[in-house]
């Protein structure tokens, strides 16, 4: 298989929710993958991934008939016993590092299809696929910069420093514990967001990290707080790659932590999205939030796993009297 060619993957036995979850993880893994992987709805694909339920049935043999066995991968929610198995949770969400290791291995394998012939002929692809409609030139790419390193970390512990400021306090990441350690506040980590080229990222052992924590005064903070901060700071009003403000109907399936960076500014839009399902352009129009700010919020919620796609628009608008709205505005103004 040639470098940088598209590799197509067909998901078998996935329901819509698990398909969405898997697509999201695949998007996030993109930066660490040696080839570009695309989920396809076409009959043929370079690889086929069977859900845990499909993998457990006799259906496995029928599917393999006449096809190269090496092109089949099997999800498992228990221990991996074979090389072509992918460990996933109950929602078919694999760990990024596990997915990256397996996909890089199989796409480099001699048994993989010589040419990804299905990619060009495929007409239906999942919403994570790139296209001029869903990927305007000015999109937010979570695979870039510090965020990309955090989301696609191949190692559980990382030490990240700045090559142009060797004395600037390093950032210690422990993805196994979902925490980061730093003596700086989030705002003081801004130099890490400025350019990806300046980042020195090196794997570390758990012992190394423990030793640093023991000798330096470092705060342990949830990794999700850092990820949220980076997304809000670096989205710059651009929608995340592969998403659309018009065609994706979305709702919030859970509340974000309203104490996170700038999250209180999004309280109204969060409330609206929790109670309604609509495309982003409708959400912006209904709540008065600027599309750019909404994109920032949406990106952060998406990467936190809080966005749920829906098939139909559902607006549960209550009729508020002008007096009621005026009162709300007055209270709102007083609280600011």
């Amino acid at each position: 298989m040639e470098e940088n060619k598209l590799v197509t993957l067909k998901l078998i036995g996935f329901n819509q929710e698990s398909r969405n979850s898997f697509s999201a993880v695949l998007t996030l893994a993109g930066r660490a993958l040696k080839k570009t992987w695309q989920i396809t709805e076409a009959e043929e694909a370079d690889f086929f991934l069977l859900s845990a339920q499909s993998s457990a049935t006799a259906n496995r043999e029928n599917l393999l008939k006449g096809r190269l066995a090496a092109r089949f991968l099997f999800c498992t929610t228990e221990n991996i016993t074979q090389e072509n198995e992918l460990l996933v949770d109950d929602n078919h969400v694999p760990r990024l590092s596990v997915l990256v290791a397996l996909f890089n291995k199989i796409s480099a394998s001699e048994n993989s299809p010589a040419q990804p012939k299905t990619a060009e002929s495929s007409t239906q692809v999942s919403r994570t696929a790139s296209s001029s409609e869903t990927n305007p030139p000015n999109f937010f790419d979570p695979e870039e910069g510090l965020l990309g390193h955090l989301l696609a970390a191949k190692h559980e512990q990382l030490i990240i420093s700045l090559s142009n400021q060797p004395h600037y306090p390093a950032l210690y990441i422990d993805t196994a514990k979902n925490v980061y350690y730093s003596q700086n506040s989030l705002e003081q980590l801004n130099p890490y967001l400025e350019t990806a080229k300046l980042l020195n990222v090196k794997p570390a052992s758990a012992t190394e990290i423990e030793n640093v924590i023991a000798t330096e005064t470092l705060k342990s903070c949830p990794l999700k707080d850092l990820i949220w901060y980076i997304v809000i700071k670096t989205s710059a009003g651009r929608l995340i790659k592969g998403h659309s403000i018009t065609s994706n109907i979305v709702t919030l399936k859970g509340w974000p932590d309203l104490r996170l960076f700038k999250c209180l500014d999004y309280a109204k839009v969060a409330t609206f999205m929790k109670n309604n399902a609509a495309p982003l352009e409708t959400i912006a129009a209904q709540t008065g939030i600027s599309p750019a700010e909404l994109n920032n919020f949406y990106n952060a919620c998406y990467l936190m796993g809080l966005i749920e796609p829906r098939n139909q628009i559902e607006i549960n608008k209550k009729n508020r009297s002008p007096e009621h709205l005026d009162l709300i505005n007055k209270i709102d103004a007083r609280l600011k």
């Binding site: 309280a267 109204k268 409330t271 109670n275 709540t287 009621h324 709205l325 209270i331 609280l335």
Partner: peptide, 15 residues
Amino acid sequence: VNILLHVLVAALEHG
């Protein structure tokens, strides 16, 4: 406490 009231006001408008 301000955060609580702020979010409650958001719910009054869009909840």
